[in-house]
Simulated assay, not measured.
Amino acid sequence: MTKTLFEWAGGAPAIERLTEVFYKHVHQDPVLAPVFAHAGDDHAHHVAIWLGEVFGGPATYTADHGGYPAMLGHHLGLSITPEQRTRWATLIAAAADEAGLPSDPEFRSAFVAYVEWGSRIGMENSQPGAEPPAAAPVPRWGWGEAPPYPG
């Protein structure tokens, strides 16, 4: 049986390491720091729980934090720019190296595919007038495939 991306990455400890390293850099980055200036001390942990669920781990974000609609709601009104989205994607890919996530091409391809997809969804839902869906499941990312949502 094939491991989930969550298991392949090293489970919750690896994802927590990733978000700790990542947000340490985010808060020092001139492009991203303003976006996250008001994020609470538990922000990195909540993102780790989100990513864990997305990559096939336990459904803790859905159970404890409101699932996909809540995540989209956190982006409302942020007006994320294409530059900020690109910087976010670049920094989290670099943080995966620093945090010691697996470096095999298959894992990194799936990881970066989600980062691209998720950051673009976040940017779209941060724009004025965005109306994210009121109900939708957390995407479950696998090896080389996007979640099957209708367009």
Rank of each mutant, 00 (worst) to 15 (best):
V31M: 11
G56A: 05
W50N: 10
F36M: 10
A39L: 09
I121K: 09
R108M: 10
F22H: 10
A59N: 07
A48W: 00
L5V: 02
G10Y: 10
F107L: 07
A59H: 12
A94V: 11
A96Q: 02
K3Y: 10
P30Q: 03
T62W: 02
H25I: 02
Q127W: 02
G122C: 07
D29R: 08
D42I: 14
W50F: 15
P139G: 05
V21N: 00
A95N: 07
Q127M: 04
V31N: 12
L101M: 15
G56F: 05
G100D: 13
Q84M: 14
T62P: 01
A134G: 10
G56L: 06
W141N: 00
W8R: 11
A134P: 01
R108C: 07
P147E: 12
A63K: 13
Y114C: 11
G122E: 09
P133H: 00
S103H: 13
A110L: 10
W8V: 06
A146V: 04
E83Y: 01
H25Y: 08
W88Q: 03
P30F: 03
I92Y: 03
T60P: 08
Q127F: 00
P139V: 06
I121N: 09
Y68C: 01
H43E: 07
G67V: 01
P105S: 14
P137K: 11
S103F: 07
I15R: 03
A59F: 05
Y114V: 03
Y68F: 11
G118E: 11
V138F: 05
A63W: 04
T4P: 13
P147S: 13
R85P: 06
W50H: 15
V21T: 14
P69V: 06
K24I: 01
A33E: 15
H27R: 15
G142A: 00
T2P: 13
R120A: 14
F111V: 04
A48Q: 00
D64F: 00
R87I: 09
R87S: 04
T86I: 12
G73Q: 12
V21F: 03
V138I: 15
V35N: 13
T81P: 01
V31T: 13
P150C: 09
G151M: 04
Y23D: 06
A33L: 12
E106I: 12
L72R: 13
A113G: 11
M71W: 10
I121R: 13
R87V: 06
L51P: 10
A146M: 14
I15E: 03
H74F: 08
A9W: 09
P137V: 09
H25N: 14
I121A: 15
Y114F: 14
I92N: 00
L101W: 15
A130N: 05
G73F: 12
A63S: 12
G77K: 12
H65E: 05
K24E: 04
G67R: 00
A134F: 02
L18M: 06
W50C: 10
V47P: 00
G40K: 14
H27G: 03
W8M: 05
